[in-house]
Design a protein around this nucleic acid. Sequence first.
RNA 1: GGACGCGUAGCUCAGUGGGAGAGCGCUCGCUUCACACGCGAGAGGUCGCAGGUUCGAAACCCGCCGCGUCCACCA
Length: 907
Amino acid sequence: MSERIKELEDRTRFEPAQVEPQIVERWLASGLFHPEPEGEASENYAIAIPPPNVTGSLHMGHALNCSVQDTLIRYNRMKSSSTGRTKWILGTDHAGIATQAQVEKALLAEGLNRHELGREKFVERVWEWQAHYGGTIVEQFKRLGASCDYSEERFTLDQGYARAVMQVFVRLYEKGWIYRDRYIVNWDPGSRSAISDLEVEERRETDTLYSIRYDVEGGASVTIATVRPETMLGDTAVAVHPGDERYRSLVGRKAILPLVGRHLPIIADDYVKMDFGTGQLKVTPAHDPNDFEIGSRHELDQISVIGEDGRMTAEAGERFAGLTVMEAREAVVAALEREGRIVAREDYEHEVPYSHRSGQRIEPLISLQWFMSMDELARPAITAVREGQVRIVPENHQRVYLDWMENIRPWCISRQLWWGHRLPVYYCETCGHVTVALSAPEACSECAGHVRQEADVLDTWFSSALWPFATLGWPQATPELKAFYPTNVLSTARDILFLWVARMIMMGIELTGEAPFSDVYIHSVIQAPDGRRMSKSLGTGIDPLQEIDRHGADAVRFGLLAMSSTQDVRYSAEKVQQGQALANKLFNATRFALVRIDASLGSGRAAAVEAQPLPRTVEDRWILSRLTGILADTAARIERYDFSHAALGLYDFVYGELCDWYLEMVKQRLPDLAGTDSEDDGRQELAATLLYVLRETVAMAHPLIPFVTEELWRYLDDTGELLAGCPYPRAREDLLDPQAETELARTIEAVTLVRGWRDSVGARAGQFVTARLCADGYELTGLLLARLARLQLLPEDQRSHALDPVDRSPVNGVASGAGGGEPSAAAPTAVASVPIPGGTVEVLSEEGLDLGAAERRRKAAKQKLLAEIERVEGKLERPGFVEKAPAAVVEGERERLARLRAELEVL
RNA sequence: GGACGCGUAGCUCAGUGGGAGAGCGCUCGCUUCACACGCGAGAGGUCGCAGGUUCGAAACCCGCCGCGUCCACCA
């Protein structure tokens, strides 16, 4: 026995923890994950990984997305191993707000804040922080087996990347699409920065809705409703609907703002809903997005009463300046109360905006920011999706994308942070002239005055939008760009479809002339087992690394893919266990086969490894046919992003066909060391077939469960090549064999039926029950039936006797040795008969069997059969059935009825 | 307010026009010479509710109920 196989023999379990680190080492050392930038993108395959936050750590979403992408990458790497290059572009994102917030938190612990430190020192600290805590997530990707190109890791703040970002800014500014404007923005007091609409999260809350009476000049009054009384200090109008008869006479008059005394014009605007409250609306253009719009239409004043620090400004008046928003609300309500102006208060449930980043309540306020107009960018990106140059899978997300794109609004791209790409905008301190350029001008081009760079940085998503091409060296025409751009697929969760994916498509088309990928795959969202969102703050998170420790990376990958069938799915520990069981099963099946073959053939094994499959028996033909089917299915499922069926189909094949049936059927044809002689009895052919099936199965499974398959490949392949670099198996249609499939299907059913009968009569597990096979269609499988169902078959009256003597007689001694070679002159009488497809098994011995139980079983089966016959008869007699149903269906039902009646005969 | 997804066995989910399935859990039997992370056999379901289409509906259509997610500027 060879040394290698000997070593394998003692490993009765697949131990992921011991094997995985070494396999990762071998993969990385092989250079397989780093393709040379050769050829055209059309013949190569590439995926750009959604860059995780540089200081982040692996969560379940990453784990699923990595499993998806790695399955695609490994499949395509194997599939095109000789014709193309496969690259998984790796890198991390600087994640402006998130990273800055982490560092600020650490500073706080030292009693410092960033302003005390100063911008330069602070940014240095962030780089230090990143050097220390960054990149752990990339190590965690390796543990999952992700076959990224680790030799070329990108970062969105790298020099080259930053140059690309600057260039894009300048270019789009020159096109007039980037501009500066005073506009109402979502102000996040937590990070003291504006944030985009997409970073706002609405939460349902109950507040008090106050009804407040404002007097109107010359008598009368209006009553407005608000949940934010403190903003009334910034009111500059009162509005009613133009069609509202009740208030027609008020329009054009002035209301008097309580506490302040300002005179507010009463205006008419369509925005006001007549049926909400009194139909009278206070207008605060500086602190409400709708009021801002009304204000622009009517040229109203904008009075900012809330500042960027979240406190009331001097404009709010002496009594309130400096108070927080909440304090101001109480104070305003108390003051109004004293004046008797609060008409009513009621509980009111509504949506309140919060910052997705800092968790603080958003203050809409007017601020001078940089914006990007999106209409021109969106147009070709809409066409690309509508016309199918970019395909969104699953399809139903396409409409969501189009709806959003067709109603796209300007994007606020400036952030008041220090960590990020600083805008390449320079202001003259003397004349205010604005210069936008790749590098700082020496002096103002207009007046030669000093220039100062814009303090703001760009929204992180501005730089992420360039990801698929900036990582490959764009704007330079690098070989990498030529070889891998456009990429093939982008895999992501749907929550960043707008935030990121849409912007990549727009920027890609605008800047490179091509959409950055042809497919967008939106994977499932994994929820906590109880159906809630998986999140750290809720305590519902499950750590994928812990799961890998416990079950192995293959198990976690398999489990995640298997459970991710629809839009939202609950985390299923069972599916992970199923994956672990599969890895172990495959390991043991291969180990068993190799040890037996090695023992049986010795040095002949090598030849068998190379040999083509040589089916000798019906079960050989059957497994080869089934293998062909699963190979085609698995490849098709991966290609259409149907990972759950790819995973579960693999499981079913390995358990339900390969191990439970084929290996059990051929066990006896694989003699152990002691039982061998040098005769050619078919062992060589069996070894060739078995090894072929195992090699193809293991190779097929590799993209899904790379570790166990790579480990097994060391034993299945003598060349020392890594499986990760081998070609993907092809389904060979010449091995399809419908006849073998039919024969085995009925035999498997028969075995199961007899086993069930045995169990019910209390036959001992190892006991061979003497029986006679009276059934057609078991010519080739009768002895398999006998062995797997533990029957000692008597030859008399056996209708299936045309067994192949070459293949069967030496292998299975049951056939002729049933009665110890002394069949009595008179055929024994059956004590029970078990129906199987095509006939019966007549049981001849009653030794130790509980025939009473058998009788009860028989009666129960008969009842069931009668009910079934009645059902089918009813169906055939149903008016219209025979006339309208397809002929094949009618025929099928008739055949079934005949079969059921035949079974009834036997019972 | 709009959109999408999901309600099938105790749990997690396949099945999407003609015989109700898997994994886990449960029951019974097995240390059968690959695997006890195993093997064999079972029990368990008015397929959310109510209509409609059809010879026939778990599946297709309409409505309702429940759960989840995304989008949206009603004070």
